[in-house]
Amino acid sequence: MTDEARLGSEATAQADKPLLQVDAAVKRFGGFTAVDHLSLDIRTGEFFALLGPSGCGKTTLLRMLGGFETPDGGRILLDGQDISGVPPHRRPVNMMFQNYALFPHLSVRDNIAFGLRRAGMPRADIEARVAEMVALVSLEGMEKRKPEQLSGGQRQRVALARALARRPRLLLLDEPMAALDKKLRENTQAELMRLQRQLGMTFIIVTHDQEEAMMMADRIGVMNAGRLQQVATPRELYEVPNSRWIAEFVGGINIIDGAVESSGGGRITVATQAAGSVTVATPLQALTTDQVCVAIRPEKIRLSSGEAAPDAGDAAGTNRVEGVIAGVSYLGGQTRYQVRLDRGALLHASVANTVRREAEAFDTAQRVVACFAPDDCMVLDR
């Protein structure tokens, strides 16, 4: 290998090396295990989301990364160095808390400058850095205000500027938008994504909001009972869940229990009591039993009136089941239908409202045909 090729190979390996490595981390509180032998790699410049139900351990993990909790086992490596026992103020890591934790007696300028002063930065450099942060989060003209004189969104931006001021290698965000209204939340999400791309910094956000995680993150780690259940991109997590639990937790889904009847030609036929025989594409994950479930996302189901013939363009093997509309929910951009099938299953279908007229809408008690392709279904172990 030439020197040029060797240097190129070493540079590639360095670029692929994770910035943060969590190695079999454990955290217990008395007899309760909040984080259970959890391992995770996070890349430089990545926007990573920790998602999970309340009490799953995601905030405890974040606090361990920030140095506010000490692991009872395992290691936390940053750039290959074990920081498990390093106190928060000595880590190149900053954390933005859910309640922002601003000092009420300090101005916007002094809140942002607080950590810089503690670090002993020269006064001129502090002034320059504070001015940079104020401009970055669009707070010009508000430098002398106290937190009580700011809106919730403005207080959040002060907290963000303070967290960014020391230019940490890693920024931790603990449900930073939980207290914001929907419109402000959406604006702030877009602003955080812009800042993360602009700064090239690694962000880790804890959230219980699935839409927030799906919109913002490059990858998502879904936790339950102190363990990671799956780490994947938003699309992979939604379209290729690795278990029934993940499929049910992430987004809306229809689950129909059954048993494998036959397989071949890239297809599996599943016999179900509630919907008859369903043809499904061969799963990416190996099944461990014939007792399975069929999973279908609501937007994958197409509805037509009960008298209509299947579309001429339907692929061979398209599943067709019949029933009646049991419920209708109009949500503006889409309408959600509950369809009670003749065999008993209740399917949820989501239809995009692409036109203003109601000619294509369905009414309660109307008979319909629900169609879904084998490639749009998933088959998972029960």
Rank of each mutant, 00 (worst) to 15 (best):
V158A: 05
G153R: 03
A13Q: 13
L164Q: 08
G276H: 03
M142C: 14
P241Y: 06
D174G: 09
E322L: 03
A15S: 12
F372Y: 10
A25N: 02
P283F: 05
L19M: 14
G258Q: 12
E148S: 15
R123V: 12
Y238K: 05
G344F: 05
E132F: 06
A361P: 00
E148R: 15
Q14R: 15
K17G: 00
A281F: 01
R91Y: 02
V158F: 01
V93Y: 00
S84A: 14
A25C: 10
T12W: 02
G141P: 14
L170C: 12
I256R: 00
L171T: 11
L170S: 08
R167Y: 09
R28K: 15
V86Q: 07
G45K: 10
G333I: 03
A259W: 06
S54R: 11
I255R: 05
M193K: 15
M95K: 03
A315P: 09
R302H: 11
T44I: 06
A165V: 14
N111I: 12
R162W: 02
L346H: 11
E211G: 05
L171R: 02
T272A: 03
K300D: 05
Q21A: 15
L195Y: 06
E4R: 07
N242I: 06
E140C: 09
L199R: 08
G344M: 06
Y330V: 08
T60E: 09
V292Y: 01
L78E: 01
G120L: 07
I42T: 12
C377H: 01
R157H: 14
A308P: 04
V351I: 15
I126N: 03
A326E: 07
Q21H: 10
G251N: 08
R43P: 00
C293I: 09
G306A: 05
S305T: 08
Y100I: 12
G317F: 00
G66V: 06
